[in-house]
Amino acid sequence: MTSSDKTKLQIQACKVRMGILLGTYSAKCGHPGGSLSAADMLTYLYFREMNVDPANPKDPNRDRFVLSKGHTAPALYAALANRGFFPVEDLATLRKDGSYLQGHPNMDSVPGVDMSTGSLGQGVSCACGMALGLKYQGIPARVYAILGDGEIQEGQVWEACMFAAHYKLDNLVIIVDNNGLQIDGWIQDVMNPYPIADKLAAFGLAVQEIDGHDFDQIEAALDMARATKGKPSAIVMRTVKGKGVSYMEDEADWHGKAPNEAEYRQGMEELEAELRELEAQ
């Protein structure tokens, strides 16, 4: 990608992060930390990787995305809104009574959401079913699922990995957001899932490890996944929970807490400064 392409993605990622702050601040609850860590990958997927059309969100030939770590819906909603699936201002209705932006993704109410998720471990299995269904019907679309690194403590995730490898779902990419933190603390202290890449490889996936905030590495990994035939791909991306908002970074406390007004203002100021800098490039 050119440096101009990369700047454009960085600008979009910055806007996605602003949407995450807007949503969680307006809702006075929600999950900003894991939303911010996945923001760059979501931006790349929706703005460069996936074949999706906001004007035709149910196109049977579209690529699919499943947010298996459904609690980070603010990031998915912000990516979808910025991509044109619904108005960005609606992000302020997140989790409010009567809003279509449910606390966890709902495929019936939110344009662009391909699977309702929220109960950890289930989305990745649904993504397997989608990948199999597309293959069975001869549709050359791809399926992407983002999982939390805490989420992989769910046994069902490994049932899904076994299934994906067994049925050679090479149209499936499982992305683990390895921000290192879950609600109760560092993942290795709560219930150690490491070594994540080795385990995924042992289950038969083609695994890559990247920096999940580096668009060049994201692009290379997704290109490699696309070129990998006969087995599903997994990308373990090292990320920073709360990435982009200084006081949230690497703090487990920001897993499921909304910013207050002062925190919201500070976060937005940081992101606005970053945006101005990027737009000046």
């Binding site: 049977p60 649904c126 079913g129 199999l132 269904g133 069975y136 069902q156 049932e159 076994m162």
Partner: peptide, 28 residues
């Protein structure tokens, strides 16, 4: 045989795979 998928002894995964298949327009 090409439309029957054994999921192994993993019912939790099977139910969600069924949901994913249905999401692509199939009846699972």
């Amino acid at each position: 045989p090409d439309r029957h998928f054994n999921c192994g002894i993993a019912e939790a995964n099977m139910m969600c795979v069924a949901a994913g298949l249905a999401a692509t327009g199939l009846v699972a």
